[in-house]
Nucleic acid binder design. Sequence first.
DNA 1: TCAATAAATGTATTAATTACACAATGCAAA
DNA 2: TTTGCATTGTGTAATTAATACATTTATTGA
Lengths: 243, 243
Amino acid sequence: MKIIPNLSVDCVVFGFDLTKLNILLTKRELRDPETDALLFTDYTLQGHHVLENEDLDNAANRVLKEKTGLDSIFLEQFHTFGDTDRIKNPKDMLWVKNIYPTVTNQVITVGYYSLVNSAKIHPDKKHEDTMWFPAENLPELGFDHAEIIDKALSCLRIKLSREPIGFELLPEKFTLSQLQILYEAVLGRKYDRRNFRKKITQLKYIIPLDEKQTGVAHKPAQVFIFSKDVYERTKKDKLGFPI
Amino acid sequence: MKIIPNLSVDCVVFGFDLTKLNILLTKRELRDPETDALLFTDYTLQGHHVLENEDLDNAANRVLKEKTGLDSIFLEQFHTFGDTDRIKNPKDMLWVKNIYPTVTNQVITVGYYSLVNSAKIHPDKKHEDTMWFPAENLPELGFDHAEIIDKALSCLRIKLSREPIGFELLPEKFTLSQLQILYEAVLGRKYDRRNFRKKITQLKYIIPLDEKQTGVAHKPAQVFIFSKDVYERTKKDKLGFPI
DNA sequence: TCAATAAATGTATTAATTACACAATGCAAA
DNA sequence: TTTGCATTGTGTAATTAATACATTTATTGA
């Protein structure tokens, strides 16, 4: 399959480990082709060129599948980055010249973000250079990926404050505290415990189970599930979080 | 300047005529190259391929300038359409074959919407095929432009409900009724007159002038202006730290 | 001067948001 | 077995925002 040289997708994979928001990044190294000396190392998003005759959304799904092993996860297109000087940093220009010498210097990239429960991505031999970083504390990034991540996060915030997509970041069964920590981590603010629970428990699509948390050294919490089904049917009762 | 054959921008130009929301469309005709018989006619958005070495945002601005004469108006990227079967309607395939025989059949297009006060676009000899249609009552559209318009409108609604961008659609001086009609037209719902005014008049960045509407056959309304300046400053105030 | 039109205005009701503190549970360590 | 620790689970009052609703006023044109 031939790539389309001037078009790529980049995926910002957000993960939540029940504590904080993380972003999946892949280590990039450039070595001198002659001396093998390490020229630089940094981290990048999961991206790849779109293939000829491939839908854009499929390209994003393919990249995710290849880089994380995950299939059919939440994926949302958020912005397309098309400045001609996107690749302007000397290290990036060097990298492109070495790795993709055939690629035009004007590549536009379509940004997607996806939401996964971090536990689902195991540290994998095949992808040992790919790992989670706290969204609050990212390493040095390549290309314009810092900008792409900023935009992804601000789009995610708007989306999360309007639609119940946070469950994509949680295990199927979760506690209300976990849900609250998730909202706080993504939206970057705190909520009052009782007010948060009051709001959540009046949503019919967040359903309490007859089941408790196990293996914790304190009072175990009740566990809940999110019903997409009930949500779709009752979309009228809206979820709105003031940011 | 050479075009990039697989990349275009399409602009959904929204206009408001103090009554309803309109969309600017350009008539498209295809005639048989031999008999000159009219094969079909419909309407399309303002779009064009991106040029080599042109920033995406610049391409959108260029298209607007070319098609409407307008410069530096509100322009917002909202979605990129990249399905391989975007052009699947027989009439569109025929059109591409006739008009752009060199263009690959896989073109992705980046959607922008822009907001203008309709009065600013005069019916112009140079662009007599370009005209306004009520957003509620559009003619037959080419390509996937109906889908693009739907998405543009839903993105505009989200944006308008979060940020004061409606003023881009109004003349500099406007009345509160005009503003209300605008919000109703875009968001597709009605507001109570007194409640709407109560809400608006407590915003510091919507400033009453010592001036009244003239030439109307009823009690003239007070006129207001929007101060982007005040808005930017008061927005920042919200981010202050409590002591 | 009258009719028509849209502007301007206030109050009461309901709903949503915010602020706030302590007892109960289960595990782990002593 | 007792005690300490960590976290869950809960209610009420105060504030703010959203909603519903009707009459008088200024201007133009007939």
